[in-house]
Nucleic acid binder design. Sequence first.
DNA 1: CGCCAGGCCGTGT
DNA 2: ACACGGCATGGC
Length: 227
Amino acid sequence: MYDRLVALWGPQQWWPAQSAFEVVIGAYLTQNTAWTSVERSIANLRAGGILSFEGLCAIPEDELRQLIRPSGFMLRKAHALKAFVAFLDAQHGGRMESLARAASADALAVRAQLLALPGVGPETADAILLYALHVPAMVVDEYLRRIVTRHGLLQEKARYLEIQALAEKAFLPDASSQSTRELARHYNEFHALMVQIGKLHCGRVARCERCPLTFDLQRHGLPQNPK
DNA sequence: CGCCAGGCCGTGT
DNA sequence: ACACGGCATGGC
């Protein structure tokens, strides 16, 4: 799937952000939210000079809520973002570079720290690890879950870690010849392509008609989309 | 108007 | 351990 989509669409240039800190903001804001809505919030934050550790620390939570309003869940997300900068301040002096060094040394430990923060589940933690800290952590979103289960690669009941293990395994054969950074680049590109194809062809119920991946289903005799 | 969006969390079994 | 509903807003 990866090779086919790379050949079809090429590099996706993800994550759409101008700094590691901005990646984190976007990772929180895009939770169950259309990216077009996140862009509005990001624009509000940029106009207010809030797209930085210092800016986010300085703004009162109730004002932050109004700026991120377009991307929904404003009470939770404002509180969660404040909790993140408190964590970054306490553990890393407010510096993303420090957090990145920690993640490079022990990715699982940093993942656990992120998961302990309010409003951070497995996908947000891995998105931060991959896109902001450049650690090879596969991001499993709803689109990848649908693609994997609808192709019969895993059962419908498959959970996050099982899907993640399957996706990471697909990049393993030549892992010995890859640097960690190169592996992260492939994870990055793969997830970006999954989201792209998901937006076009993977609705909640079905909408898989002209998906370029269903072509593979027919060729290899895998189960058709169940719905 | 109804469904959907790049999840997460508290609650009930 | 899981299923389920709420969280907020905007696009189509």
